[in-house]
Design a protein around this nucleic acid. Structure first.
Ligand code: SF4
Ligand code: SF4
Lengths: 138, 138
DNA sequence: TCATTCACAGACTTATCGTATCTATAATAT
DNA sequence: ATATTATAGATACGATAAGTCTGTGAATGA
């Protein structure tokens, strides 16, 4: 059970967007180059981020992506949920008259994690971005 | 991103084991019947629980499974990790000289969840077990 | 001792989902 | 108009989850 690699890409892309100039859009071509991933694939994730209202897209020449909200407003949770969705980690596959307590327990725990992820903002790591392009491990 | 259905089965099986008599082993046949799942498939998960040291298996006639440790000692986290494994939720697929902060943030959050799951014991829900066999939703 | 009952292991099939590519279309700047 | 860029859809591939089948070996009890 793991977050998808797409989430990894999205988080890194957001990191670059936060670090870049606040106004001028950044093309997917540049981002893909920095991350060492194909443009078409990365654009899928960026589109999800757009639909989640985190970033804004500009079509046409000199277009690209830029932040939509205030950068201090964008949390890890926002990005992760934009990619992974918001369905809860555990859903009981049974049913009967009373409510499901196992599900309740796991949901509580997941809430703890979400709380933390919500408090951490992407902008918190902005100083951390490496100068060189990323190198893939796998 | 979801826990596997196997985790669902395992949690419910543990619930039954905790509720049953403390000493006499329960056969996989009975458990499978209660949960409405095939014996061979359920036994895979029970074997994982055995290897994780949570339950004990007794071969031969009148055999089955019974708890190994003190029942108050078995947490949700124990069961979940026995099935899902212990690899962390997020692993950065890149590398460079400095340490990975994104990974750190997510790991911290995951730790929060694990903390909660560790504090919740299976035995806490023992009064909750339904009399009737489970009915599958999907 | 012998047959029965059980857990256990491995091979195997199938379905589902993540990963990735390709292509076509629509929007915009020059 | 043309080049540039995002967006959508179709498609292919691989990995993992879900589930079945079969055989093996251990304990029981008759
Ligand atoms: S978790 Fe509890 S409520 Fe949900 S199906 Fe199992 S026993 Fe019923
Ligand atoms: S250290 Fe930070 S920037 Fe570098 S790969 Fe890990 S998450 Fe990405």
């Amino acid at each position: 059970m793991k977050y998808s690699q797409a989430t990894d890409y999205a988080l890194h892309a957001m990191l670059y967007l936060v670090a870049e100039t606040p106004d001028k859009p950044v093309s997917v071509q540049l981002l893909a180059e920095k991350l060492g991933v194909s443009q078409t694939y990365l654009s899928k994730m960026l589109t999800k981020l757009v639909k989640a209202g985190l970033i804004h897209s500009v079509s046409g020449a000199n277009g690209g992506y830029k932040l939509k909200r205030n950068q201090d407003d964008i949390s890890f949770l926002d990005v992760i949920q934009a990619i992974e969705g918001t369905t809860s980690l555990f859903e009981c596959s049974f049913h009967h008259d009373s409510a499901c307590l196992i599900q309740q327990v796991v949901a509580d725990a997941e809430q703890q994690m979400m709380q933390t992820l919500k408090s951490k903002k992407i902008a918190d790591l902005v100083a951390h971005i490496p100068k060189q392009p990323h190198e893939r491990l796998t």
